[in-house]
Simulated assay, not measured.
Amino acid sequence: ISILTEYEKEIESKEIEKVVGLDFAMDGLFVDSEGEKANHPKFYRQMLEKLAKEQRKLSRKKKGSSNWNKQRIQVAKIQEKVANQRQNFLHHKSKNLSANYDAVVIEDLDMKGMSQALKFGKSVADNGWGMFTSFLQYKLKEQGKQLIKIDKWFPSTKTCSNCGSVQEIKLSERTYQCTCGLSLHRDYNSALNIKKEGIRLLASI
């Protein structure tokens, strides 16, 4: 048997019992349908502040000078450290989810479009959502589990996860309140809706 066919052996699909929905969060990666936040670690945030400071120093030096070169190397070292820390964090989070759930449901987001439209370029890039979802996809696939992507236009934020009614909610409103009596953090409410929609899609496959 060739190495390729050995590696590509059939992975049995796992029966789906445990499902979780993830709502993308700009400041902390995601909030899940259990109400848990991913919470980017503080050391990573501190590193980003340090990086910004060193980049400002670099911009004040004469391009091509020996001091500029020294500072450029300093900035590159911090950038590498930030990238490694981000990658480790995303690996850890995706590993936990793929170990604990049979299916993970996310929105099929256009990150490039979001960063341009909302002028969030830096924070979207720093968040690492794209890298996180690709880690998640292959980790789930290896175990015969599934990553379900729901339509990006699905109104997860506007829908009440309790009664299903849809209402407008401003970006500044952090709590979703419905006439049915539901009062929840908006991201948690969204994650519950994402999970429900994922279960509906799974049932129709």
Rank of each mutant, 00 (worst) to 15 (best):
M131S: 08
Q146A: 03
D151L: 05
S172I: 07
N67G: 15
K112D: 14
E107H: 10
L58Y: 03
Q167W: 00
A203P: 01
E34K: 15
W129G: 00
N69K: 10
G181V: 07
E8Y: 13
I78V: 14
Q177L: 10
Q116N: 09
F135Q: 01
Q116V: 09
W68I: 06
R86I: 03
Q167F: 02
R45Q: 06
K57Q: 13
R60Q: 14
P41L: 03
E12S: 10
E17T: 15
S66L: 12
G128R: 02
K57V: 13
T179S: 15
E15F: 06
K77R: 14
K53A: 09
K50F: 07
E17W: 06
S190V: 07
K18T: 12
S59M: 02
S123W: 07
E173Q: 15
F30C: 04
I199P: 04
S66N: 14
K42A: 09
E168G: 09
I78C: 03
R45E: 10
V20P: 00
K149E: 05
Y188A: 02
L97F: 08
S2D: 13
K196H: 08
V31A: 04
R174E: 07
K195W: 06
I3E: 11
I11C: 11
T175A: 09
T133H: 03
V104E: 00
S13H: 08
A117V: 08
K53M: 10
L201M: 15
K81H: 10
N100M: 12
G113E: 06
A83R: 12
Q71L: 05
L118H: 15
N96F: 15
K37I: 04
I199M: 09
I150Y: 00
L147A: 01
S123V: 14
Y44E: 07
E107A: 12
Y138I: 06
R60A: 11
Q116I: 08
K152V: 14
L136W: 04
Q79C: 10
L140Y: 03
K119V: 01
V124F: 07
L29V: 13
K95A: 11
D110S: 11
D110L: 11
K93L: 02
Y176T: 06
L90H: 01
Y101F: 14
Q71I: 07
I106H: 00
K77W: 02
H92L: 11
G128I: 00
L140P: 01
I16R: 01
S134Y: 09
H185F: 10
Q146S: 04
L136R: 01
H40K: 05
L118R: 12
E6T: 15
E168P: 08
Q85Y: 10
A52F: 04
Y188S: 03
K53D: 11
D187M: 06
K50N: 13
S156M: 03
K152F: 12
H92M: 12
K152C: 13
A117N: 14
S156G: 08
S183D: 11
G35E: 05
K81C: 03
D32T: 01
K50C: 04
K70H: 08
S13C: 06
S115N: 11
V31R: 01
V19W: 00
L118S: 12
G181I: 07
Q116K: 14
S165A: 13
K14N: 09
